[in-house]
Structure formats: structure tokens, C-alpha cells
């Protein structure tokens, strides 16, 4: 998932974090409601439109998806062979395409492959929706959300600090890497044992440095009064605007429609 905030001024950026969270939940329900890949494709398109709206960096998305390719293929294969015909409501889905092993064992069902495709598309829409959420919502907003949801201050503090220290630790990692390279360390040894061994000179100083840093961070936090009270002043009051009510109504409507289609019209199953 993309975690860095993408500055912008679209409607999605301006929505209240709670509305966005609700929308996220809505898409989650939507995509778990339907089993038919056709409907999933519709959802992916919908999320794709959202992504297009906030001008998501396409290259990054592609780079994120690429390593997943083997997983995608294996998911389709596994579902194709393991879902027995009895698990599907529709007759067309129960059809068996061929048997992988002689003697009528391990049959590949049409429904199984469709199910695999659904899983994949579901994964896609989840990735896109969550990226849209994180890209348009600043860390501040998330902390606000946690606070509104009565999540303890410690937890949101932990999250903010963790995110603050990612670049710092990465810088440390680079410095350590350079220092060890200057002593002739090679970080491209072959084999699993070799590569683990070659990373010891990197990992140990990184752990030690993190512990030292954590120690002085705890001092610095106490120095600045952290933990005196169990809450703190919020830096920004979030509030609903008319656009939030509109958006929530739209999402509700969409959800009701979806439930109606799925359970009344009995569409979208397998």
C-alpha cells in the first residue's frame, strides 16, 4: 500500500476522515457481497475511477502490483482445482473442465477459476481503495480519527512516532551500509545462509542504534511532559461539512442497492 500523503485538493482530499473511513468500509462490504467476477470488475472500475480522480501515481501502482503476479496466478490455479462442484449454486459453475490427474481426480471447475478471478479482483479493489484512502488523508487526520473512535492516545502516539522515524532509520541503514562497505563487506553473497550471514554486520548495528535511539526518545518524551495526563490537546477539530453528508448518503444508497441486487434479485453469486 502507498502510505505517503499525496497533497491535492480534490473532493476526496477535503472529505472528513470519518466519511472516508465509512466509504472504505462500504467498498469492503460491497466487494465481499458479490462472488461473480463481472460484478467485481464493476467495483474495480469504480475504485479505479476514484484513483484516477485523485491522480494516483500510476507508475508506483504498477511497481507495487508487479511482484504480486506469481501470487495472482497461483491463487487462480489453487481455487480452480480445489473448489468442488458442490460448492456452487449455479449449474454453469459446476461444470468440470478437465482432470489434472487420471482417474477423474483433481478436476478443474469453471466456478473455481471464476472464484479465483473474484479473489484477485477483490484484492485489486482493496489495494486501490486503501491507497486512495491513505494518499488523501494526512497523518494528522488519522490520529484525529483514532481519537474520535476513543482509541487510547498511546496507540496513535505510537503510530505517529513510528511513521516519523521511518526516514531516520532508513538514513541510519544507509550510513551503516556504507561504513561496512568501506571495510570490504559484500552484501551480495549467494545462497540463503550466505545472504543472512552477510547481513549480520548491517542488522546488528541497526538494532543497537535503534535501541539507543529508542532510549533517548523516551527521555525526550518525558522531558516534554508526555504521560502527565492521559490525553492531549487536539491540534485540529474535525467537523462534518455538507459534502460529507452527501457522500455518506451516496455510499448508503449504493450499499442498499447492492444488498437488494444480491439478495432480492439473487444476482452476482456463483
Amino acid at each position: 500500500m502507498l502510505i505517503e500523503y499525496l497533497p491535492g485538493d480534490t473532493l476526496i482530499h477535503r472529505l472528513d476522515v470519518r466519511t472516508k473511513m465509512f466509504g472504505f468500509l462500504g467498498f469492503l462490504i460491497l466487494s465481499f457481497l458479490f462472488l461473480d467476477p463481472k460484478y467485481q470488475l464493476l467495483i474495480v472500475t469504480l475504485t479505479g475511477l476514484l484513483a484516477f480522480w485523485i491522480k494516483i501515481p500510476l507508475q508506483k501502482i504498477w511497481r507495487m502490483m508487479l511482484p504480486l503476479l506469481p501470487i495472482i496466478i497461483s491463487i487462480i490455479l489453487i481455487t480452480g482445482f480445489t473448489f468442488t462442484p458442490g460448492r456452487f449454486e449455479r449449474v454453469s459453475s459446476q461444470a468440470i473442465l478437465f482432470y489434472a490427474l487420471p482417474g477423474g481426480r483433481l478436476g478443474a471447475t469453471v466456478g473455481g477459476f471464476l472464484m479465483g478471478t473474484t479473489f484477485i479482483l477483490r484484492l485489486f479493489s482493496m489495494m486501490i481503495v486503501s491507497s486512495v484512502l491513505t494518499l488523501t488523508t494526512s497523518m494528522d487526520d488519522f490520529t484525529q480519527f483514532f481519537q474520535k473512535m476513543k482509541v487510547p492516545v498511546e496507540l496513535s502516539m505510537m503510530l505517529t512516532t513510528a511513521i516519523r522515524f521511518i526516514p531516520t532509520l532508513d538514513k541510519k541503514r544507509r550510513l551503516i551500509l556504507e561504513a561496512q562497505k568501506a571495510r570490504g563487506a559484500k552484501f551480495n553473497e549467494k545462497g540463503i545462509v550466505g545472504s543472512i550471514r552477510s547481513y549480520i554486520p548491517l542488522m546488528i548495528p541497526l538494532f543497537i542504534n535503534s535501541i539507543i535511539m529508542a532510549n533517548s526518545l523516551s527521555m525526550a518524551m518525558l522531558n516534554r511532559g508526555y504521560g502527565l495526563t492521559r490525553s492531549w490537546t487536539s491540534m485540529r477539530e474535525i467537523s462534518f461539512a455538507p459534502r460529507d453528508y452527501w457522500s455518506i448518503s451516496c455510499i448508503m444508497l449504493l450499499l442498499m442497492l447492492a444488498v437488494f441486487v444480491r439478495f432480492r434479485l439473487h444476482l452476482g453469486g456463483l
Binding site: L175, A179, R183, P201, I204, P205, I208, I212
Partner: peptide, 9 residues
């Protein structure tokens, strides 16, 4: 390098 703690392991 400047910081010895970046290499001692």
C-alpha cells in the same frame, strides 16, 4: 566514518 556506532557489531 564519523560515527563509530554505525559499524561496530
Amino acid at each position: 566514518f564519523q560515527n563509530p556506532d554505525h559499524q561496530i557489531f
